[in-house]
Design a protein around this nucleic acid. Sequence first.
DNA 1: GTCTATACTTGGATAGAC
DNA 2: GTCTATCCAAGTATAGAC
Lengths: 213, 213
Amino acid sequence: MAKSGPNGAIARSIREGTRSRIVEAAVQTIKERGFAATSARAIAATGGFNQALVFYHFGSVNDLLIAALDHTSAVRMARYQAAIDSVDTLPELLAVASEAYQEDLAGGHIKVLAEMIAGASAMPELGPEIAARMQPWITLTEEAVVRVMAGSSLAPLVPTRDLAFAIVSLYLGAAMLTHLMGDATPAESLFRTGAKVGPLLELVTLRNGASAG
Amino acid sequence: MAKSGPNGAIARSIREGTRSRIVEAAVQTIKERGFAATSARAIAATGGFNQALVFYHFGSVNDLLIAALDHTSAVRMARYQAAIDSVDTLPELLAVASEAYQEDLAGGHIKVLAEMIAGASAMPELGPEIAARMQPWITLTEEAVVRVMAGSSLAPLVPTRDLAFAIVSLYLGAAMLTHLMGDATPAESLFRTGAKVGPLLELVTLRNGASAG
DNA sequence: GTCTATACTTGGATAGAC
DNA sequence: GTCTATCCAAGTATAGAC
């Protein structure tokens, strides 16, 4: 209270601290220029601050990049979780996934993820950090699958862990290929097909209150 | 004739030219140390020749890397094509794919591919080159799918292009995640599950000479 | 064709002024 | 906490001897 004056936006950006300004500049630099070009100097140029601040606040570029991944992951995870929670059937789940993919593609989140994973190959010490941050996505996916399959007679037959891993792999692989091929974007066609196939699969997950004892 | 003497191995390696020595050193360096660490100096150290030879023979490190990708791709493509040609049913195809994946993982080919794709993000000018070299794999996959589905009543319903893209995406995504997670290797479990599920899917692709006109 | 030596560039990271 | 200035390492690429 004592601090807040009439100068809204500026005061806010000061109060939020330089840390988040740096994190956001890092995210934007990855989006715009790719992992390899995201140096401390490039981030500083994007955010309009000094290069040395990266090291003062985060110790190293790598640690900043981890923080940036955490930041975007948290935002996206919350959104996906909400979308998934509002859904009960497999076709709906496919629709939500397709929608989320398109959104993330347009918003550049896909690119950040792809670049970070690509970058993990480049900086081996980033590997475990990123792997750990992928795990929640697999778990999220598995929970969604379990929920959607619940009540189906097929449920006990489905290896949900493998299925979740496969879905995340597919999502990621499609993202990397799309990213690679640029304008061709065959992933879009794939998701459209998925949306068409979804309703057919509903037969598979029909609640079978009748057939069960 | 005039050139070949009693000194077999040494003469051969001279005859084969420094170019292929450099290409092989590049492949091995990517396998062992990753894309980012594969500099002209590192490649030269691996192959035991001078750094300047990279530029003399290939002009730039990037061009050498492209040549290296072409080299491994050609070898693997030939092997996959032969394996696929010897197969007629979907379960067999899954078995072949699973086997190839394990082989490529053990042989380090998966790593080369993953690193190159990762690297493409790093060096944008590599992107189109690598994308162009992925296309034949999608085509190969599509042809295999078409062949295996031929005669099934489902064949006309399957969007083979999308399916092939999905399979390659899955393969690639699983490779990158496995590469990332290291010892966890959930992809192995996935392929085991795939092998178990395969026979069930045979029902789907049964030749239906009876039901057709 | 292959080597040594070196020019040039970029980026991580720190010291020290403010 | 933020800036300027700078050190140092690693890498691309070329010149020129052999």
